[in-house]
Design a protein around this nucleic acid. Structure first.
Lengths: 340, 340
DNA sequence: ACAGATTTGGCAACCGGTTGACAAGCGCCG
DNA sequence: CGGCGCTTGTCAACCGGTTGCCAAATCTGT
């Protein structure tokens, strides 16, 4: 562009199929076919072309390829908050599955805001072949609108607006309620996450049902930021609820709650049992080590991408989701209910 | 392609500058100019074009734009291990800075392997305008080779091969050694990270110098995986060293060490003081809360991207790196040396 | 009112691949 | 030996923008 002439050959930039064509003595389109459509070209020519390509260290320009095909071999993973440990597993699983399929993963953060998320998706959408919406703060119809334009898979976000991958909370919650009931707890509290969090609603629903089925009392405590601070801030309200065991929306909040409780001089679990969700990094490290309902988020990330690829026709079969069952991990933050 | 005819208008796909041109009654090139070169076109025409663009909800196709310009407005962040909490801050800072400049960030994982890292860079390089190599396992000359083709900024990886952003370990380490000396420790141990880690070498060097300057004994303990397990596995060797305070290469290892020590019945810090590096999530949560040398990785990530953009001519000035000083965070894992 | 300077917009080439249509080359069979 | 079908490679259009060059239109100054 800026530099006229001097284009072909010897430039620092990558070799093109034209360079290869010249070197192998064929037409550029033959090069394209040889490299992408096995069998379309005679074995001899193909070998000659491949050798030339190797010699020139040829790598097809992804943009040039994307233009006519409309496919970029890139996937987007949109997250509410990159620094929330919950998403680490998601990122790793998604990255792995994407890389395995020869796709590149772009990470975009929506900073826990629906508006930012919409803008982010808007920005990233034209450049990717599909989108994984994890921990979305968007309304169903907004997701539907996006899904109408690009393949979309949501994580932890049920509903009909799009394909979805979610760990099945039931088994873990059933085990949890049994565990707490066995310890003698009669009144539970659920420390809810953000009001618009589908996951929080779902966990609450399952917990409520399981608790009622066992004749336990259970209350939901306000909506809170899904962070360590959010958990700490809710401590007073947890005490006020009269519950002997608190189930936090996620591990982060449970951790904040543990710290606040201990800072207030309460013993965990002797005075108050605390449970989290997700089994994030650090859950086993905190004292007392956190009892939590684990979901294999790495697997969830992998499934989400596999599912997305399937949606794009690229995929094999959408993998079996039975593996995504949750399980209870009992550690030290739950104990017998205090005798009053 | 597959669908002949029917191209223009009404298609689900995005509007093009040709659609806008038609609607505004001008030439496509005029549309391009109006949208990208303010002032190059009369105000009246520009207004007409912008309105048409809005009505059509036009978004320029990034690939089509990238082709002639060679610029994709995408940056790559290459990490050894996405799930290492150390990188969270890096990711967030980089993502933020990139988004602020209108760039998209792609994350690629090298799984702690130089070979995988090289392949990853190879794969991703053609599609990005610049690369941030964090925690690189590559040799200097390999990095040099990459830097010759694309702008590269490394994080925590000194040397002349490329631009680099690293927290300055000196202040934090000086404070740490003073802190330990004041507590009466006379023999320290440094629990090294991977053998090929530039950061580990650097931390050891600074620590050694600071300790010797104060007349303290200090030993380096083998090379270890930079993980919780790696720290735990090294516990026996730490005890054998006779040191009363162990400085681990990073927080993860320090955490593993704390757990192993406590499991072995030792009290931390009464019997053994333990220190980490980075102040990752969880450092404050573990019992005893970890004393650590904090580096603001989020800022480092931001700087790395800013620096990279500057390298690409996009940037303003490479920001002042003085802010990247490390500092000592004293918590509960360090205490007076045991009297023998 | 007119020559000359300055805007403004159009034309067309180009970025680097992909692909439908087609023709030349070839073996096979009757 | 000619016709037939199959393989192999070429041509050229196209994806959706960007930009150098030029001509038409508009604005100056006198």
């Amino acid at each position: 562009m800026t530099e006229p002439g001097q284009r072909r050959s010897g430039r620092a930039g990558a070799a093109t199929i034209y360079d290869i064509a010249e070197r192998a003595g064929v037409n550029p389109s033959t090069v394209s076919r040889a490299l992408n459509h096995p069998g379309r070209v005679s074995a001899a020519t193909e070998a000659r072309i491949r050798q030339a390509a190797d010699e020139l260290d040829f790598h097809a320009n992804p943009m040039a390829r994307a233009l006519p095909t409309g496919r970029t071999r890139t996937l987007a993973l949109v997250l509410a908050d990159v620094t929330n440990p919950v998403v680490f597993g998601l990122i790793r699983g998604a990255e792995r599955a994407a890389a395995a399929a020869g796709y590149t993963l772009v990470i975009a953060e929506s900073q826990e805001s629906g508006a930012v998320e919409a803008a982010t998706v808007e920005r990233v959408a034209p450049a990717v072949d599909g989108i994984v919406l994890a921990t979305s703060r968007l309304a169903d119809d907004e997701i539907g609108a996006i899904a109408a334009r690009k393949p979309v898979v949501t994580v932890n976000r049920g509903g009909s607006a799009s394909a979805n991958v979610s760990p099945d909370v039931e088994p873990g919650i059933a085990a949890l309620v049994t565990h707490l009931a066995d310890l003698g707890h009669r009144t539970l509290a659920f420390l809810a996450g953000p009001a618009d969090s589908w996951t929080s609603t779902r966990r609450w629903g399952a917990l409520y049902a399981a608790a009622r089925a066992r004749g336990l009392h259970i209350v939901e405590i306000g909506s809170n930021a899904p962070t360590v601070e959010g958990g700490g801030d809710a401590y007073e309200r947890c005490e006020a609820s009269g519950a002997t065991a608190v189930v936090a929306y996620n591990d982060l909040m449970a951790m904040g709650l543990i710290q606040a409780a201990r800072a207030a001089g309460r013993r965990v679990p002797a005075d108050l049992s605390i449970v989290g969700f997700d089994d994030i990094f650090g859950a086993a490290l905190i004292t007392p080590a956190l009892t939590t309902v684990r979901a294999d988020l790495e697997l969830a990330g992998e499934h989400a991408v596999t599912h997305l690829l399937a949606l794009m026709g690229e995929g094999d079969a959408p993998a079996d989701c039975a593996e995504l069952a949750t399980e209870l991990v009992v550690r030290d933050s739950t104990g017998p209910a205090p005798t009053r």
